[in-house]
Design a protein around this nucleic acid. Structure first.
Length: 549
DNA sequence: GTAGGGTTAG
């Protein structure tokens, strides 16, 4: 029964609650928390309806301390019995990674075990956020009547754990049950398309976005920008960015990253300046983006300048990832000793990424002595990261140090490493086709190999059997082989409407250059190829990127 | 009124 006191409270907090709800629904999370504080200062007492939005904001910003304060208020105000406050609390703790606290709230409020689905959804999210994908999926499978949010929870969880292909599968399954996607669903699907380079599927999703009137949703637009950026379609990415009614910091970050990936560092830096002018405060993420963009394009001084501005002007404390960017910046420019000096002067302890950046620079500039120092350090931090062993082995290969190569091989054997097979994928007619070396599982395998033979025969005819000078390494042959299969498949299936093919993980070696040149002649259309960090455009057999050849 | 969401180098 409502007491007179609680009625007075309810009336007093209602206008505040409406505003809290509005702010949280517009993703204005810090504003929502400030409003809650103003509400307390003004003497209004929060009620049960004030908490869910404020807790959601704490969860979104990952502010566990504020969340715990709110939990105290919930107890003080006697709202612990409200099921929707309990689910919001569990969700907040789950998202902040405080599993124990979430579990405690769950155990102490047994009545919420019946409310049911919301708590299950929260727990699926929690498992996924903690990286226990298996547990999350098991819980999901056991939910008898899945709601849209249940589907969204498992899909976003898979997306966040890099299981992009699973997301697309679950999405199909969801549709087969007649469940209609909402913006949150489409965000996960788009983000997975981005990771797979699946532009066709992404375009289908964009049609759905338009048909359902989700175009003004900032999350959806950001995911679209990132999808088009990673699929090599810069024009479309920019198109989405330009028509957005409201751009968040993430929108700018995605767009800056898009120019960075495409080797257009000047435009990226210009966009960063525009962002500042438009009154948006940069965060650490956007600095990672713009710094790495500068190092890829050789804008060394500009990068160093920005790193300085980050600390002085924007009062942002650089993390190890920023220091790694600066080491990369100096290292790529050949300023290896300076990079080493910079590491030694760091106020925080350098991590694996910092030493890894130095190791990468040593590979480019063939500095074996420094590489050995960096390698020893980097495997202290990341002993199980096979990439660094391969990198060091390649440095020895370049310097023809046979003893070094053997030493690395022994280390790898002792640690029981098994190399993951390299693979490539091509999107065709909305399906992603994956190829491994020697792979014969594809339904068109006979035709694919026939096409591959034809192409390789013509390559040799034209250029002679050019030997690749980088293929001494452990991983190259398998990966190249898978790429060739993917290319052969792509040519075989290129339909007149298909403008762009995206081939990921392409290794840069002489042999591949010849091959790609050949391929572009055969298909007579534009090719976009992505290697480790950027896109290369091939038109009429020529790549416009000067350092590619 | 609860539960689910976008950007990140080496």
């Amino acid at each position: 029964m409502a007491t007179g006191r609680s009625i007075v409270r309810r009336v007093a907090s209602t206008p505040w609650n409406a505003r809290l709800r509005e702010l949280a629904s517009q993703s204005l999370f810090s504003e929502s928390i400030s409003l809650y504080r103003s509400m307390l200062r003004s003497g209004s007492s929060p009620d049960a309806f004030s908490y869910p939005f404020t807790l959601k904001s704490c969860a979104a910003l990952s502010l566990p301390v504020s969340g715990q304060q709110l939990h105290c208020h919930v107890i003080r105000e006697g709202c612990v019995a409200e099921p929707f406050v309990i689910t919001a609390l569990i969700s907040m703790y789950c998202k902040c990674g405080l599993v124990e606290d979430a579990r405690k709230v769950f155990d102490e409020n047994t009545q919420s075990h019946q409310l049911g689905l919301a708590v299950l959804n929260s727990f699926i999210t929690m498992y996924m956020k903690c990286g226990s994908v298996e547990s999350g999926r098991r819980l999901f499978d056991g939910v008898p009547v899945k709601g849209l949010i249940t589907w969204n929870a498992v899909m976003s969880g898979c997306a966040q754990n890099g299981l992009a292909y699973d997301v697309l599968e679950i999405y199909e399954e969801m549709k087969s049950y007649g469940v209609r996607p909402d913006p949150v669903t489409l965000v996960s699907v788009l983000s997975s398309c981005a990771h797979l380079g699946a532009q066709r599927i992404g375009q289908e999703v964009e049609k759905l976005v338009e048909a359902n009137g989700f175009v003004s949703n900032v999350f959806v637009c950001n995911a679209l920008i990132s999808m088009y950026a990673r699929c090599g379609n810069l024009a479309k990415a920019r198109g989405v960015f330009d028509v957005m009614p409201v751009r968040s910091l993430v929108s700018w970050t995605a767009m800056i990253g898009c120019y960075g990936m495409h080797g257009m560092a000047e435009t990226a830096v210009k966009l960063f300046d525009d962002m500042i002018k438009s009154g948006i405060r940069p965060d650490k993420t956007v600095f990672v983006m713009v710094l790495s963009t500068c190092s890829h394009s050789g804008l060394t001084e500009k990068g160093l300048e920005l790193f300085d501005a980050m600390k002085r002007e924007y009062k942002l404390e650089p993390g190890p990832e920023h220091y790694a960017c600066v080491v990369d910046l100096l290292g790529r420019a050949g300023r290896i000793d300076e990079a080493m000096g910079f590491i030694e002067s760091m106020p925080i302890e350098p991590d694996g990424a910092v030493w890894g950046a130095l190791l990468g620079a040593c590979k480019i500039h063939k500095n074996v002595d420094m590489a050995e120092i960096a390698f020893a350090k980097v495997i202290e931090f990341e002993p199980m990261n096979i990439g660094y062993y391969v990198l060091m082995s390649n440095i020895y290969t370049d310097s023809k140090n046979q003893e070094g190569i053997w030493r690395i091989r022994v280390m790898m054997r002792e640690r029981g490493f098994k190399k993951e097979p390299g693979y490539s994928y091509v999107e065709h007619m909305g399906r992603v086709h994956l190829f491994l070396a020697g792979d014969r599982s594809h339904e068109q395998t006979e035709e694919v190999y026939r096409m591959l033979d034809e192409l390789e025969a013509s390559v040799m005819e034209i250029e002679g059997n050019t030997e690749c000078d980088r293929c001494g390494e452990v991983s190259s042959s398998t990966r190249e082989h898978s790429e060739r299969l993917a290319v052969a498949f792509a040519i075989l299936n290129t339909s007149p409407g298909a403008e762009i093919l995206v081939i990921k993980n392409l290794r840069v070696c002489e042999d591949c250059h010849v091959f790609i040149k050949m391929v572009s002649k055969v298909v007579d259309r534009r090719f976009v190829v992505r290697d480790a960090s950027r896109f290369h455009y091939f038109e009429d057999g020529l790549c416009s990127c000067k350092d590619y050849w």
